[in-house]
Simulated assay, not measured.
Amino acid sequence: MAAARFLVSGRVQGVGFRAATRGQARLLGLVGQAINLPDGRVEVRVWGLAERVDALERWLHVGPALARVDAVTRHAEEGAPEQVEFVID
């Protein structure tokens, strides 16, 4: 199982980014969460098959139609998932 933490910057809050990320993650069979950060970024933590985590990363660079993604940074994630599905907070 692969795990990653993504920080997504741009116009990613108030445009349905977290909900669209949840939909994409569920389609890929991933678990994790997406949360808005106080600095305007969205944090996405995800666990699943490596190729599916990579697929979500590619999607994060585009996001939903109303979003504008300026940057996506990937960090290693430690430990087991806290969720049994993908949730937004």
Rank of each mutant, 00 (worst) to 15 (best):
W59V: 05
V31E: 08
G14E: 09
A19G: 07
M1A: 15
L37T: 04
D89M: 07
G32T: 02
G29F: 00
L7H: 10
L28S: 08
A3D: 03
T21V: 09
Q13S: 11
L60S: 08
V44D: 07
E78T: 13
D89G: 09
Q33A: 08
V53G: 06
I35K: 12
A80F: 06
V12K: 07
E51Y: 03
H75A: 14
Q33K: 05
L56R: 14
V62E: 08
G48I: 02
G79T: 05
L27A: 14
V53Q: 00
G32W: 01
V31A: 01
V42Y: 00
D89I: 09
A2S: 13
V44H: 08
A34Q: 01
V42N: 05
Q83M: 11
E85S: 15
E82F: 06
E82W: 07
E85N: 02
L37A: 08
W47Y: 10
A20F: 07
G40F: 04
P64D: 04
A76G: 12
G10H: 07
G23C: 02
R5H: 12
H61V: 08
F6K: 01
S9P: 01
G14R: 09
G48S: 05
D70S: 13
A65M: 06
V72G: 10
F17P: 10
Q33C: 03
A20Q: 08
D89Q: 13
W59L: 09
R11D: 03
G16L: 01
E57L: 12
V31P: 01
G10P: 09
A50G: 03
F86E: 01
A25I: 03
Q33S: 13
F86C: 01
R74L: 03
A2G: 11
L7A: 02
E77A: 15
A19Y: 15
M1P: 06
G23K: 11
L56Y: 14
E51R: 04
T73K: 13
G23T: 13
V84I: 10
G10W: 10
E77C: 12
A3R: 09
T73F: 04
F6G: 10
F86W: 02
V31Y: 01
H75T: 12
E78D: 14
H61G: 14
E82Q: 13
H61M: 14
G40N: 11
H61A: 15
W59F: 11
A19S: 07
F6W: 02
Q24S: 09
R41G: 06
H61Y: 02
G79V: 04
V46I: 06
G32N: 05
V31F: 02
W59H: 07
G63F: 08
R58D: 12
A19K: 13
L49C: 00
